[in-house]
Amino acid sequence: MPVRHVASFDIGGTNLRAAVVAVDDGTARVVSQRRQETPNHLILPAMSAAERLDAVLDFIVAAVSEARQSHVIDAVAAAFPGPVDAAGRIAALPTLWGDDGQALCPLALDGLLAARLPGLPICLFNDVTAAGHRFVGQHRDFALFTLGSGVGLKVFIDGQAQVGPHGAGGELTHMVFDPSPGAPACDCGGRGHLGALASGRAWQRVCAAAEQDGQQPDLDGFVEPLARAVAMLHYALGLELFLFSGGLSEALGETLRAAIVRRLPEQGWQCGQDWNAMVRLAPDDDAHALIGGALAACRE
């Protein structure tokens, strides 16, 4: 089969990223990429959700047009930080537009892109689902966490993402982990969710508070909800591989991984688990959703 070129997108809460990915016999490499700041609800609070959506669509269309100047583009793969249902509709995008854009959902984004990019196959993914497809050639049963603007999670069993008909699978990150009234607010509008407690934005908040108090940030305390989530998946599903990726994972690296491992023995029954072997860092090239989305698009 000839090499296929996919225009692949990772639409994050902090950055919009575009790449041309060459896929050849099940392997993929990034040929070129570009990025720009995401017009999210925190940096541009006056912009409406509809305006943010238009800005994202404009970015995708412009990047595809640029890619076509040097490559024959065979498909478009777009990964978004929200649940995607079986019909390809996005149920929510809280890290992009907070809770004020929920009126736009469920959003048939593949149709909007197809109208702007006629003739190109459009493949729409949750961002962590896309990222996970990079690893299914190496692993069959695993959980992938992404720690970025929010917290993403997907479980793969026998190489397939377990998302359910409404795309809710893996949204453990929007469960309440801190029920106290003063728990941090989540982008979705709730409080005390894992995504509000253990994201990159949450770590920035912890570091700022510690600096104000003249103390070091408490990393072991910060990662406890992540350790609890790992333990839940291990005890419920028997998973024994947990990969951590995303900007915060890359920034803290082994320090973060070791802290999670330290907090795991207190989470439940200890029956010989080798937590140190189970919890791993994904490669730190920050291209998982771009590469995984392209691979998945070529499999469809």
Rank of each mutant, 00 (worst) to 15 (best):
M1Q: 07
P2E: 11
V3F: 00
V3H: 05
H5V: 01
S8C: 09
F9W: 09
F9A: 09
D10C: 07
I11T: 11
G12W: 04
G12L: 03
N15M: 11
A19K: 12
V20R: 05
V21K: 13
V21E: 07
D25T: 08
G26R: 09
A28I: 07
A28E: 06
R29K: 10
V30C: 06
V31M: 12
R35F: 09
L42K: 15
I43T: 15
L44S: 14
P45K: 12
A50D: 15
A50K: 11
A50N: 07
L53R: 14
D58H: 08
D58T: 08
F59T: 03
Q69E: 15
A79L: 08
F80R: 08
G82T: 06
V84A: 04
A86T: 06
A87T: 13
A87H: 14
A92C: 02
A92T: 08
L93D: 07
G98L: 12
G98F: 12
Q102Y: 15
P106R: 08
L109A: 13
L109H: 12
A114R: 15
L117S: 06
I122G: 05
A130L: 13
A131P: 03
F135Y: 15
F135K: 00
V136N: 04
Q138R: 15
Q138P: 02
H139K: 06
H139I: 04
A143E: 03
L144A: 03
T146Y: 09
T146S: 13
L147I: 12
S149L: 03
L153F: 09
L153W: 04
K154R: 15
V155C: 04
F156G: 03
D158P: 05
G159A: 05
Q162E: 11
Q162C: 14
V163N: 06
V163F: 00
P165I: 00
G167H: 02
A168K: 05
A168Q: 08
G169D: 01
V176W: 01
V176L: 01
F177R: 07
D178N: 14
P179H: 02
G182H: 13
A183M: 10
P184T: 09
C188D: 10
G195V: 05
A198M: 12
A208R: 14
D213N: 15
D213M: 14
G214D: 13
E224I: 08
L226Q: 10
R228I: 01
A229K: 12
V230K: 10
Y235T: 12
L237F: 15
L237G: 09
G238F: 03
F242H: 07
F244I: 02
S249T: 06
L252R: 01
G253Y: 10
E254K: 03
L256K: 00
L256Q: 01
R257K: 06
A259C: 01
A259E: 04
A259Q: 04
A259N: 05
R262V: 12
R263E: 14
R263A: 15
L264R: 08
P265T: 10
P265D: 04
E266G: 10
E266H: 13
E266K: 14
C271W: 12
Q273F: 09
W275C: 05
A277P: 06
V279D: 11
P283Y: 09
P283N: 11
A287E: 13
G293F: 11
G293H: 13
G293D: 06
G293I: 13
G293M: 11
A294D: 07
C298K: 00
